[in-house]
Amino acid sequence: MRTDLELIHRWIPQGAHILDLACGDGTLLAALARDKSVTGYGLEIDPEGITACIAKGVNVIEQNLDAGLANFEDDSYDLVVMTQALQALRRPDRMLDEMLRVADECIITFPNFAYWRHRVHLGIRGYMPVSKSLPHAWYDTPNIHLSTFNDFEHLCRDKGLSITDRAVGIRDHEGHWTSRLWPNLFGEIAIFRVGRQPMRSAP
């Protein structure tokens, strides 16, 4: 499993009822159902991902995240997860509101644009970064709202949300000590656990 998914797997409590936005091939939901009796639904628009979910027995709903989550009721889930999709949404800020409407906690992961390799690409070589976490060229990328570890933290602060946990991952291995010290520089993938109320202690 991907590094960010492994961490999320650890964070999600036993028996939680969750939504997984942009659930891909259903790897996370299938593992959570198997290991932690987690229930819920995945949302996805990629046909291959959807078929893979169905083959695994993961509940998947074909739904475009840009259309919002209006069909999900307030407080109807324990937690909403969205991995590697924030940067491809039309309005990431509104999605954050939506996620924290249907659950009081959410976990979001996205590629950290301020990762040192990305900075080298842009700052020194003068090209838009292309990396394992940002594999597309500037002209065909679905990522229209790239942000940094710091940017996201500011957004949460502006919205008065509480960050109950945060981490960074490196694609291939567990985070190095440097990434814990300077996450905005040494973290390739940002992982945030955000709650609705500020100053709320983690469960």
Binding site: H17, T39, Y41, V58, V60, I61, Q63, N71, F72
Partner: peptide, 19 residues
Amino acid sequence: SRELTDALIHAGKPVSYVN
């Protein structure tokens, strides 16, 4: 079909929906 799917989701039933 969405109407049915959403009702199934609200009722907490296992469902997959494909368009």
